[in-house]
């Protein structure tokens, strides 16, 4: 339904439906589904392995506006890689999730970033690097500094979270929402750019058959 609204008709001059597609990417069992579940239901349970993609919605009200998140929680196994690009197409934001107790999951997140950089221009997507499982600090293999440093060089948002103990989960999504709104307002204040961006938005949202 929300898709029927034509872009650019709202009084605020920003995306009127304010639906933002957020995609969760990362290795298997780093906690993508758990982060989404914690954020949307504020609960933690053992998730089944995701096959394909599962979906969540969440609406967030900030001082600067309202953001409706459409969360796409993707399958983590590398073998699913070839179908995963179906899922991040047209995303407004991406969470690259790794597990702080498994070093190679950060490398995998870096590979995801490379994929995203191929698909999107830097101002088209908000990307956050998320080191999950801070509740397992004793088994940590990736230092906070390492994640932070990488995020800084690539201009990504960064937080270390725990879906299990509910640490900074809301905060990372809120940070993404703020960044999204901030970008939209920047675009709205530059009229020519704004028109371009709403057109792009329309195309971006096209989830046409990938064939």
């Amino acid at each position: 339904m929300a898709l029927k609204a034509t872009p650019g008709t709202s009084p605020e001059g920003i995306c009127p439906t304010n639906i933002h597609k957020v995609v969760l990417l990362g290795s298997t069992a780093v906690g993508k589904s758990s982060l989404a579940y914690r954020y949307v239901k504020n609960d933690f349970k053992e998730s089944l392995p995701t096959v394909g993609c599962s979906f969540f919605t969440q609406t967030l009200s900030l001082e600067t506006g309202t953001v409706k998140f459409e969360i796409w929680d993707t399958a983590g196994q590398e073998k699913y890689h070839s179908v995963c690009h179906l899922y991040y197409r047209g995303a407004h934001a991406a969470l690259l999730v790794y597990d702080i107790t498994h070093k190679e999951t950060l490398n995998r997140a870096k590979l995801w970033l490379r994929d995203l950089e191929k698909e999107f221009l830097p101002d088209e997507i908000v990307i956050a690097l998320v080191g999950n499982k801070t509740d397992l600090a004793a088994e940590r293999e990736v230092s906070t500094e390492e994640g932070e440093e990488f995020a800084r060089t690539k201009g990504l948002l960064f937080m270390e979270t725990s879906a299990k103990s509910n640490h900074l989960v809301n905060e990372i999504f809120t940070a993404i929402a703020q960044k999204l709104l901030q970008r939209e307002q920047e675009k709205a204040s530059a009229p020519s750019l704004s028109r371009r961006s709403t057109v792009n938005l329309g195309e971006d949202r096209g989830r046409t058959g990938c064939c």
Binding site: V51, G52, C53, V83, R207, G209, C210
Partner: peptide, 20 residues
Amino acid sequence: KNNLTPDIYLIDWIFTLYSK
């Protein structure tokens, strides 16, 4: 109209033969 392609739901159904 909603750009809802079959991969969205079929992947899980076919991969696990509905058992999940």
